[in-house]
Simulated scan of single mutants.
Amino acid sequence: MKTIARQLLPANLKNSIRDTLTRFDSLLLSIFSKPIFMAHPRISNAIYRLFSSKFDREQQAVLAGRLAYRVNTGVGEKSSALLRRNTHRLEKGLSMQPRREVFAEEFIIETATCFVQCMAADKICEQELKWAEDVLSSYFGAVTHTANIAEAYRIFAQTSRCSDTSESGSAPSSIPYQHQQIEKSHIDTDSFTALCRQRRAVRWFSEQSVVDADIDRAIEIASLAPSACNRQPFEFFVANDRELAPSIAKYAGGTSGFVDNIPCTIVVVGDLSAYPAERDRHVIYIDGSLAAMQLMLALETMGLSSCPINWPDLDVPEQKMAKRLGLKPFERPIMLIAVGYAESDGMIPFSQKKRAGVLRKDI
């Protein structure tokens, strides 16, 4: 209906309606931002429910994600959010100084049960299963076996792999290790600063095609980014095609003027089914953004330029993107990234950055 109205109404009437709505919004803000109302969050919520639908899609996505988590008991199509979270919690316990003789009693049975379910499902990533198995084996060998832990070990030991160590022993163990064992890079601060200065938002690309193998390698590097409880609640939808990439990028709305020359578009999509509670609804944006930044830096080292494209929370573009990508109700786009080889004489904005003196606030 809004699209039809935009096409039929004259420009002066559309501007008049827009101005009226803006003034009404300003009036609401001036009234309901007063301390007497701000002290009562339920009033603010009621005002938004009456006059705005801006949070509707987020609420629906969060509810759909929570339901999917409960129905699937944290076990997804290729990965288990529950197993990943609890395995990471066990890792932190094993890394604690000093390590406690008994820990994780409140969730160890749940973890062992989930591991057995994932093994039986035969659809979870092999590396994920090996990591969980190694950490669980290390855990059971390190703690005192209380009644809960003994029961969890009984459940865990049901799997055939636990008794057959030849398979899991053929690869390096995926358990916590000392900091001194980290493989050190040869990048110093100046080199890294130079890489960050080199990475600019590029909007003008050459005709050279992007190699799929380079995208895959950059995604592998992006997966090394930190993630809350190592759940990694995101995926990268890749449109590496000269006709498809611009059609996807156009949904963002902020690509006017340069969208038709984008050779490859990546959509970073968050998965709210990784969480059983509303409190974690923003983690997809944090973790997805951390991975996206690492992805763009990785691309830069390969000679590929990129441009992060903002994805505002707007209903119509969300619906179009969800339909085009076949997203589930609990999957939400976080941002888009244009990728390609920069046109050598293409212009880029200077974009002055804030200095440490402006950004730092001492506590």
Rank of each mutant, 00 (worst) to 15 (best):
K14Q: 09
S16T: 03
T20Q: 13
T20W: 06
T22Q: 12
T22E: 14
L27N: 12
A39W: 10
H40S: 14
H40V: 15
I43Q: 01
N45F: 05
S52H: 04
S53E: 09
K54A: 10
Q60R: 08
Q60P: 02
A61R: 03
L63I: 07
G65N: 06
Y69N: 04
V75Q: 08
S79T: 00
R84I: 05
R85N: 05
R85V: 12
T87Q: 03
R89V: 03
E91H: 01
P98G: 00
R99M: 08
R100P: 11
E101A: 08
V102F: 01
I108E: 00
I109Y: 02
M119P: 05
M119Q: 14
D122L: 10
D122P: 01
K123D: 09
D134I: 06
S137W: 06
V143I: 08
T146C: 03
I149F: 00
I155N: 00
A157H: 02
S160V: 15
S174E: 14
P176I: 10
Q181Y: 10
S191A: 13
A194W: 05
C196H: 00
R203Y: 08
S206L: 01
R217T: 03
I219V: 08
E220I: 05
E220G: 03
R231F: 04
F234H: 03
F236Q: 15
F237S: 08
F237I: 12
I248T: 06
V259D: 14
I262T: 05
P263E: 14
T265K: 07
D271F: 07
D271A: 12
S273D: 06
I284N: 03
I286G: 00
G288M: 11
A298P: 00
A298F: 03
A298H: 02
L299V: 14
P317H: 10
A322C: 09
L327D: 05
L327E: 04
L327Q: 03
K328E: 13
F330N: 07
F330Y: 13
R332C: 09
I337V: 09
G346P: 02
M347D: 12
F350M: 15
R355Y: 11
A356R: 09
L359K: 04
L359C: 09
R360C: 14
K361Q: 13
D362A: 04
I363D: 13
